[in-house]
Design a protein around this nucleic acid. Sequence first.
DNA 1: GCCTGTGAATCCATTCACAGCT
DNA 2: AGCTGTGAATGGATTCACAGGC
Lengths: 211, 211
Amino acid sequence: MVKDNKIPDATIERIALYLRPLENLLDKGITVISSEKLASMCSVNPAQVRKDLSYFGEFGVRGVGYDVRDLLQVTKKILVSDREWRAGIAGLGNMGMALVRHENFLKRGYRFVAAFDSEPQRIGLILRNDLVVQPLSDLVPTAERMKIELGIITTDPSQAQAVSDMFAEAGVKAILNFSAIQLRQPECCLVENIDFTVHLDNLAYHLNKED
Amino acid sequence: MVKDNKIPDATIERIALYLRPLENLLDKGITVISSEKLASMCSVNPAQVRKDLSYFGEFGVRGVGYDVRDLLQVTKKILVSDREWRAGIAGLGNMGMALVRHENFLKRGYRFVAAFDSEPQRIGLILRNDLVVQPLSDLVPTAERMKIELGIITTDPSQAQAVSDMFAEAGVKAILNFSAIQLRQPECCLVENIDFTVHLDNLAYHLNKED
DNA sequence: GCCTGTGAATCCATTCACAGCT
DNA sequence: AGCTGTGAATGGATTCACAGGC
């Protein structure tokens, strides 16, 4: 893997984007796809698709296209989405519950192995046969013991920074933050913030521009 | 507003990003902020912040910084986030419920004025005193009558395309799609797809690269 | 002294266009 | 004939560095 050299960040993001259409194609039994078709499914330029892939090797057949199954495997390998990642989630309000129950995470290899909340009435709640809500105060030891690699924060904003610090203390290396606060980025951790309203703001701006 | 000229797309996305830290600052009673501080809160370059804002005018004071309240107002105006937008949501599973109950949308002016689902047991469900779940088959007339501007799709993937088409038919101009499918982009509509696993894939890639 | 506003320089990223393979 | 792989060209976006104002 990796033809070495610098891989543009934008390329990685797009490759993650290609995954879903490829899965859909595979489900539909389509075995070969051209850069042109894949590109149009993702609203990008065909040359872009080819170039993105070319950073990692030559996976297509000239005159034909790409084998869907191969390409899916390759892209998953690139993204290290070909193994299971162990995730912990803190905050089991509506959003947290929605994420835990979202079967897509598991399908892509992201497995929730621990769940934490500070509300007494949520502690002990059985989310799956092997996933029970634990008190937030158990986060550090549990995350260490269970070798959690990804921390997902869906607490309310007032708790988010503390939770982030706890994840960092427990050696968690990456955090996905859904709470409405800008996290102080711990030195040791990758943090990605998700803010839905950003997407709506974007749409609103572009809608307004059109008139 | 708008010094005219071409505004980079990336600038719009970042301005949407500045909103949240600015709100937090305002809540904390901080009245002045430098591009340096705001930049570090958003993990961008200070010159970037200044340049982004400069596309729209001169809002800062040399030697001092930006007035937080003013800047918040200005950025909201730029994003057209200074008025209410009328949103409809289809699909009230976990994710849909989480979004409806997420108070941040309303705080930013995105108001759910209608909700739709195909499950009989969810129809009639009262989400707020003025928001009751309606059958999916009522989507087109209701969306038209209520002048819905933004459509949010949280149905399962098998229904998403049909829902998208209905929104388009009803004259909805922008769609935010949370379902795990690539929507055929209707000519008349802006569509933004949200896929959480893309963020996790990104983190996974970067985590792996570090060793 | 400090921080903004912005041309100029740099750094990327995207797209073109065509050679190369099937 | 058709579609990939990729240097070269283009087009943006980011950052620098400093003039300008408080």
